[in-house]
């Protein structure tokens, strides 16, 4: 069907998108201003705020920690979630629904509550230090993504293929790694992307888990903007948004954005 025009709807959509994207563009523009205060529209053009961001060791340290935790937590979530998702699709056993619900349940608990129980029990009661606690908390955040996406990829997988490999003499593990895994790898990839992004951007859980010199990037930024109002953060935000854009382009080229969201 030929697409028609609808001017009023088009205008509303345009304005809504200005509301969604505009603030982010303003941040990007403000990061190049020469004034010490963050204003838009700014004057002049400078890259000095970018130079400053890369000299602030606290941000760099926090960014590194955020990246490490995001990837490590996602890896652990895969190790816990993929075998479970496989078992749920492959075997018959009692209490399947309960198990699936359990693996999806962390998403039902508000992150702020997860953060609170991490602090209350894992840190204060069980005396784990902050970094392992962050890793545990972020693993909890990632497990539901892995479970949801991998079970739905396995639902489309024909287990007869695995049976065939087995009857041709392939050992169980071999069949899993060479037949099952390659067939669900795009599902696993999109689960990883979502889990890593979600972990990297998380505030509510990480805000409870800080120690001197140890905090996640979003928490470090929040602490900074409560007291400072200069374009350094705008520069940092621009760098982060460019990375996000890069990741989105990569997803679009490989998995297709539609499969991820």
């Amino acid at each position: 069907m030929k697409k028609q025009h609808h001017i009023a709807l088009g205008l509303i959509t345009f304005l809504v998108y200005v509301f969604l994207i505009g603030p982010l563009l303003i941040i990007m523009a403000a990061s190049f201003g020469e004034q010490n205060a963050l204003v838009f529209p700014g004057q002049g053009f400078t890259l000095k705020w970018y130079a400053q961001v890369f000299q602030m060791s606290s941000f760099l340290r926090a960014a590194l920690l955020s990246i490490e935790i995001a990837f490590a937590a996602t890896a652990i979530a895969l190790l816990l979630g993929v075998p479970a998702a496989y078992a749920l699709n492959r075997y018959r056993f009692p209490g399947k629904n309960a198990v699936k619900t359990l693996f999806l349940s962390p998403v039902l608990i508000p992150c702020i509550v997860l953060g609170f129980i991490m602090l209350r029990y894992v840190v204060n009661q069980w005396n784990l230090s902050v970094i392992p606690s962050l890793l545990i908390g972020h693993t909890l955040l990632s497990v539901p993504y892995v479970m949801r996406v991998v079970t739905s990829s396995l639902a489309n997988f024909d287990f007869a293929m695995e049976e065939a490999a087995g009857s041709l003499g392939a050992p169980k593990g071999y069949a899993f790694f060479h037949i099952v895994l390659p067939n669900i790898k795009s599902g696993i990839a999109s689960a990883c992307v979502m889990a890593v992004i979600n972990s990297f951007n998380n505030v509510s859980l990480s805000t409870f888990l800080t120690a001197p010199g140890v905090s996640m990037l979003p928490i470090e930024i929040m602490g900074y903007v409560e007291y400072h109002f200069d374009p350094t953060i705008a520069a940092l935000a621009t760098v982060m948004m460019l990375v996000t854009l890069g990741v989105m382009l990569l997803i679009e080229k490989t998995l297709g954005l539609q499969t991820v969201v």
């Binding site: 697409k3 028609q4 025009h5 609808h6 709807l9 088009g10 959509t13 998108y17 969604l20 994207i21 603030p23 982010l24 303003i26 941040i27 403000a30 963050l38 204003v39 838009f40 992004i197 990297f200 951007n201 505030v203 979003p218 930024i221 929040m222 903007v225 109002f229 953060i233 705008a234 935000a237 982060m240 948004m241 996000t244 854009l245 990741v247 989105m248 679009e252 954005l257 539609q258 969201v261």
Partner: peptide, 30 residues
């Protein structure tokens, strides 16, 4: 009506993938 559905979806996903700290901060500026 949109001729660029993919782009419009990507533009909705972009803020979703952007840190909520940055999005709140942008309103502090505005």
């Amino acid at each position: 009506y949109s001729k660029r559905k993919g782009l419009m979806m990507a533009l909705a996903v972009f803020p979703m993938f952007t840190s909520p700290v940055i999005r709140s901060f942008s309103w502090m500026v505005i």
